[in-house]
């Protein structure tokens, strides 16, 4: 899975995605090196858990989604289950830690 296959969410898309998917949304900035690395990590997570849904929110384009999801910094991962953001994790993590975060949420 290449990075471009991650679905980019806008404000309306965010709400409907959360309501209809179990997975991880990454809040990122285009030129942030840590965000770039975390998108690569998510690709590795997808290989290990093919059924996991993944999406992205560009924090600079959609600051209102940041506020709605209570996200202040990037990169932040939001674990989405049962129609809600269950947990958030900010920073850089390896695939093992990311999977553990998602499973625990």
């Amino acid at each position: 899975m290449s990075d471009t296959e991650l679905m980019n969410l806008d404000t309306a898309g965010f709400k409907s995605w959360v309501a209809s998917h179990d997975g991880i949304i990454i809040f990122h900035k285009k030129l942030c090196p840590h965000c770039k690395v975390m998108r690569t990590v998510l690709a590795k997570v997808k290989i290990q858990i093919p059924e996991i849904a993944l999406a992205t929110v560009d924090s600079e384009e959609y600051p209102e989604i940041m506020a709605e999801a209570s996200v202040e910094h990037v990169p932040t991962l939001c674990a989405v289950k049962g129609g809600q953001v269950q947990d958030r994790q900010t920073g850089v993590f390896n695939p093992k830690e990311t999977i553990a975060f998602y499973k625990k949420a």
């Binding site: 840590h34 770039k36 690395v37 975390m38 690569t40 990590v41 850089v92 993590f93 390896n94």
Partner: peptide
């Protein structure tokens, strides 16, 4: 930063 971040993530 990217290199350090890659190391952190691997």
């Amino acid at each position: 930063r990217e290199r350090i971040s890659e190391l952190r993530a691997s």
